[in-house]
Design a protein around this nucleic acid. Sequence first.
DNA 1: ATACCATCTCTTTTT
DNA 2: GAGATGGTAT
Length: 795
Amino acid sequence: MSSFDDPNAMSQPSLAARAMAARPAPYLDELNPAQRAAVEALDGPVLMLAGAGTGKTKALTARIAHLMQTGRARPNEILAVTFTNKAAREMKDRVGRLMGQTVEGMPWLGTFHAICVKLLRRHAELVGLKSNFTILDTDDQIRLMKQLIIAENIDEKRWPARQLAGLIDHWKNRAWRPDQVPASEASAFNHRGSELYDYYQQRLKTLNAVDFGDLLLHMVTIFQNHPDVLEQYQRWFRYVLVDEYQDTNVAQYLWLRLLAQGHKNICCVGDDDQSIYGWRGAEVGNILRFEKDFPGAKVVRLEQNYRSTPHILAAASAVIDANQGRLGKTLWTAAEDGEKVRLIGHWDGEEEARWIGEEVESMARGTRGLRPFSLDEMAILVRASHQMRAFEDRFLTIGLPYRVIGGPRFYERMEIRDAMAYFRLAVSPDDDLAFERVVNTPKRGLGDKAQQKIQMTARSNGVSLVDGARILLQDKGLGGKGGAELRVLVDAIGRWSDLARQPEHNHIELAEQILDESGYTAHWQNDKTPEAPGRLENLKELVKALESFENLQGFLEHVALIMDNESDAGEAKVSIMTLHAAKGLEFPAVFLPGWEDGLFPSQRSMDESGLKGLEEERRLAYVGITRAEELATISFAANRRVYGQWQSALPSRFIDELPEAHVDVLTPPGLYGGGYGAAGMAASASPQIMTAAESDLQERASRADVYNSPGWKRLQARSQSRPMSQPRESRSMVIDAEAISAFTAGDRVFHTKFGYGTVMGLEGDKIDVEFDKAGGKKVVGRFLVAAAEAGDVPF
DNA sequence: ATACCATCTCTTTTT
DNA sequence: GAGATGGTAT
């Protein structure tokens, strides 16, 4: 531990820092008046209400720079918390740039969790842990809970471990320890909820482990029970800054309040209109209550938007305006008018994906008087990840490069987690969860029965599973193939841990050795499934990632908290992601598909949380629209396949909230042939058992007559002028007679359904085409169009 | 211990 | 409709 970031090694504010105060501060000149006010109000509580695209990070980093520049605090006396590693990294970079390289890193700029780990390792003994505790991820947690549920003879099918995990997580978010769970909730989970929570915490303690929620909760406990420790940090962290304050949960809130209680030098930055994580414990109330919590707080509103055009802002503002109980901000911009928000309805989800695919392509070429947009500048933001499939399918067929943001993360992949479990065993052989995970991976003939024997031996001897296995083998309690294999494994673990303890032994070599000797690499080499090569590739990447660490231990410690996967740069691609994943990002052109009642706003959200749920959905809509810089395109479909069943839906109520003056309604061919209105009618019939709040909601919805809504009327108006749909193929796919005879073997062609391909030959009235993605097909000539060029993919 | 069939459950997700 | 999980048959 360096003395630099150790509160115990406190010293006087440095002379150098004070001397710096005299120098001018160029970063202040780049701020607008509101930003500047937020930066210069250094002492006392400050709430910075920063609307979307108003230069929040700029103000926050300038504030940090200003704190140092004025000599108020040294870099290590500033506590700055974010939610994601990405945000933390960005802030570090920007502060570094503002200050020049003279500033040593800020040890206390990081995520809530990363900072809490650091603190908890110093004070672990105060909550009955050793400072080398392990951090469990969701997977480990669930396995542990499953064991508990089975041990307690609870029907695991009716009471799944997932649910218990969710419940306990919820309680931890609210900062309830097992004895603090209110009676109204404690009986959840078959009346055993709080009891199981208690057992779970005991198990964690014996395993010397914590889960993510514990990181915060343990620190709150320590601060509450040990005033001396708390005081020490209150004094050390002279200034506290919090990013995305609207996303804090109760535990985080308590933690912050405890730390800032003394000097009250706390600056919270956030936007109540962008609070979209209520479902995972975030309390908008925290930000709404700030002025009560910190009387005399200075509230600064950042309202000048530097991101979007006026039309986009107007649309977003109108939507969010329908929410109650906002702190209230009015975004404005100095930008030119630009394009209106575009609205388009489709017959079904497939048609929507097809249209967006084509629109992306033509926008990339730069049609319709719009400037050309590179694929990197376009994004498709969906409400639910299952919506992504339609787009992936479509983009694959037409050969449009895309990237999905926020898929399964690198460190959550099976092979990575297996490999990490082996590493964990090398570093600490007593890690029972790691042992359980890999004892029969690859298959060693150690099934349930053998594993139970190991468990029993370990428990009766009061030792870890590896040691239990050793004893079992010594007592000849396990013979045959399984016994022999177990011997090999146990010996190997012994060897690895010896090597891991030798600082001179290269940890990268050790990692390779572990993967090799465990048979894990061979396991995937022998696997013939199509995923196997990718998994081996990932393992290689994992080993490569070790390079930036001193040893395995250091690597493991960091990995638990840093679950990033940097999306590959390289070729320009259109991005597909959820609205949640899009928060904090911006794109010149944004597509917002699936704006249908039930999907967006999500029915489940409204069922479970009533008006609160609807308002959070509306904030999501606001987040979506405000991601767009120049062009936002909202769309909906009358019909969609949900869980294999066709369902019709009405356009989202959020569409009715879009102001007419800022919206352009586009009409695609193929929409009004199928009785759109009839399809819409069918959707409203879904009777529900409702609470009072929900029925109120329902009433509101039905009173808002969709057919008199501006959105609907606009669509009707357009449909009259172009009453009948043409067949889908009519736009670009129909080929005139001459064209058909023009196809010969070797021609590059395009088919709406199968994508690009090469003509192999002619067979009667059919043409034999070898498609790039879909394989060989015989198709009717009129569904084919000559591909633009031999080099087909236009990008 | 594994392979195969039946059944269930389907937001959003960081750390 | 599809993927994940679990139970049963081999």
